[in-house]
Amino acid sequence: MLALGAGLMLARVARASTEENWRALSLLKADEALRGFEADRATATPAGAREADFGRAVALLVRQPLTPEQVEEARKLFTALADSGTDDVAQGARYFLGRIAQHHLEQADPAEAARQYRRLLAEHGASIWAQTALTRLVLLELYPADPAGAPAASVAAAEKLLAEARRPVTQSELHLVLADAIFYYGLPPAEALPHLLAAEELRQLDPPTRADVLVQIAEVSVLVGNRVQARRFYETFLAEFPLDQRRFMVGQKLKGLGGGTPPGVGR
């Protein structure tokens, strides 16, 4: 009994210590977290050791001064973790392998990043790591390394990935970046409208983004001749964002649509 109690206590201490290391890392105290994870690893169970190695590798990505050698050390740790299991740590490690290829190397390797993301999606499609990877994979489709490609084809390829989005937060992110790419490439704004409407319906937007999306839906609705929809979204915007700088301009737009301006427009 005593041994069991001691074991449970020590496990609790180990868990608390791991949590403290992650907390330190959430505040970017990389040195402190690294020391903690290294200490944990010495006494950890196999599962605890994997968590500690994952923590070490993640911390290496922000320990200053950040050197290419340090990133390479992190990459090796992630590779070992990703190739030696299918657990959450392995998935997280594969996601980070994609991120290293995408943003950490002196010369980015988008093909390698896409390969890691696609593998994660194929093997663990619904996991949070795969869903996060999906939002980065869409960017690689939308903005290929070779800028000579046709924008419409890039958007079409990215739209196909929507089928892989299993969580509302992922769906929302994907619709937003698709609408934004359509605007950026100067494709017909009407093509962005379904994405904006879908993003709004998913109710995942933070307040500043929601304000933008409501205005965007209304503005594009005017362009496609859907005045009823435009009015509805202008009015929703005015009701939800009484202090937004665009209030006067939206009031003018509503006047332009006819049918009067809602009370309280302008201050």
Partner: peptide, 17 residues
């Protein structure tokens, strides 16, 4: 790039906790 990296790390840390 610094902000993306920072977000990756801090958000992962928060997710673990």
């Amino acid at each position: 790039r610094v902000a993306f990296n920072t977000d990756d790390v801090t958000d992962t840390a928060r997710l673990r906790v």
